[in-house]
């Protein structure tokens, strides 16, 4: 069930909302920098930096890849380990 809109219609619709979202990211990063201090060791900060790299690196499935990046891993022996 593909989108009924074509690429030109989509970019026309998405340009301003995307521009606004990217600006919000830039402004939030500026805000963090302005208050000073070092956040480089904060887990969340590292995750955000890596997420920005994923956006640039992944050719497709960006949303899924980002969600996996922010997820705890699964290991399939959990029931045996917990005696369940």
């Amino acid at each position: 069930m593909s989108s009924a809109a074509n690429s030109q219609q989509l970019i026309a619709r998405e340009y301003l909302p995307l521009r606004a979202k990217i600006l919000e990211i830039g402004a939030a990063l500026d805000r963090l920098e302005r208050v000073g201090g070092d956040v480089s060791q904060h887990d969340g900060w590292r995750q955000l930096q890596q997420a920005l790299e994923i956006l640039q690196r992944c050719p497709a499935d960006r949303a899924e890849q980002l969600l996996m990046h922010f997820s705890r891993p699964y290991q399939d022996r959990w029931r045996a380990e917990w005696g369940l």
Binding site: L67, M68, F70, S71, R72, P73, Y74, D76, W78, R79
Partner: peptide, 18 residues
């Protein structure tokens, strides 16, 4: 929610499938 969703969903699917 959030970082627990993927792991929790897999655990739930495991229990349902078992």
């Amino acid at each position: 929610h959030l970082e627990d969703k993927y792991q929790g969903t897999r655990m739930i699917l495991q229990m349902l499938s078992d």
